[in-house]
Amino acid sequence: MLTEVTSKPAAASSWIPGPSLPLPAGDQTPHPTPLLSPRTTAAVLHTVLSTTAEDGQADVEAITRLWARGEPIRSLPRKPRQTLRFGVQVLVDLGEAMQLFARDQRELVGQIRSVAGLESTSVEYFADIPTRGSGPGGRRTWRDYTTPSRGSRILILSDFGIGGPAFHDRRGKPAEWLSFLNKVRREGCSPVGLVPYPPSRRPAWLTSSLPLVLWDRSTTVGRAAASVRR
């Protein structure tokens, strides 16, 4: 047998709302951590971008050896020094595999210009491999790649085909990269790669054909110098 149930609605709350919390001050947007340590970025870049010039101070030891052997000094021996005076070309890979690092690329290009100087720095963009086309602007403006002036340092911001989707059909082939590296060396330029992947992921053909610097917070000036010398 059903029994009728009666209930009274709950009494209305008498609470009074208090003041709203203050709005946060400043920009609260989270900023990704840069790949290179901000404290050492300028020094690391100077090490990576510099080339060797045989126009330093007079090499007293070499001069002394020539005198001791009675040999004529036809040109003054000088010690090598690191310099940025030959200019820098930055090649920025915009291929699918490097999209994850797009923000880091943009920030690094600005830092490179600060270190090497606006007039001494040129920037070219490409996708997967420079020889398929490159340029300082959008993809529609890309043309055949042009080697910079003799003596320039060429810094390549790329994964060299290491990362990206497994079936990325436009990935730069080893033969293409080797051909490109041979071309710029014949023109008297010195290429260096800045790679966001550790040595354990680099193929043998790449490590044996190009100085590679790890694009990571663990990279110090000493490690960068050792990588460039290698």
Rank of each mutant, 00 (worst) to 15 (best):
G151R: 04
L210N: 05
G56M: 07
V109Y: 09
S200I: 04
G161E: 02
D55N: 15
S114Q: 15
T51L: 01
R230Y: 00
P38G: 02
T41I: 13
D169V: 13
P80V: 02
A58R: 12
D128K: 03
S122H: 11
V60G: 04
P165T: 00
G87S: 05
R201H: 03
V48E: 06
I162Y: 01
A53C: 02
V88G: 07
R171Q: 10
L66T: 07
A224M: 06
E107W: 11
W177N: 04
T47E: 15
L45E: 05
F167V: 10
T29F: 10
L49V: 06
P24V: 09
G172P: 10
L23S: 14
G188M: 06
C189H: 00
L181R: 00
I63N: 12
S152K: 01
I129L: 13
W67D: 08
H31R: 13
R201G: 00
S122M: 12
A43Y: 04
S200N: 06
P199V: 10
A11F: 12
H46V: 01
S75D: 06
S122R: 15
L45G: 04
T29G: 02
A42N: 15
H46L: 11
T220P: 05
E187W: 07
P148T: 04
S20C: 10
L100C: 09
L66I: 06
A226S: 12
T64D: 07
I73K: 05
S200H: 09
P199L: 09
T51Q: 11
W15H: 11
T41E: 15
E124Y: 09
F167M: 13
S20T: 05
F126D: 08
W215H: 07
L214N: 12
R201E: 04
A10D: 08
R39T: 12
P34T: 01
A53E: 14
A53D: 12
E61P: 00
G193C: 00
P22G: 09
T121N: 02
P72A: 12
T6W: 10
T6P: 00
D93Q: 06
G87E: 08
V123S: 00
T47P: 03
L100F: 13
E61L: 06
G163S: 05
F167E: 14
S208K: 04
L214W: 14
R74H: 03
Y145D: 03
R85L: 13
A175M: 06
G26Q: 09
V184D: 03
F160W: 11
T220E: 07
L157G: 00
D27L: 02
L108R: 11
S227M: 07
G164R: 01
E96N: 13
G161R: 01
A12L: 11
T220Y: 04
T131L: 13
A97W: 03
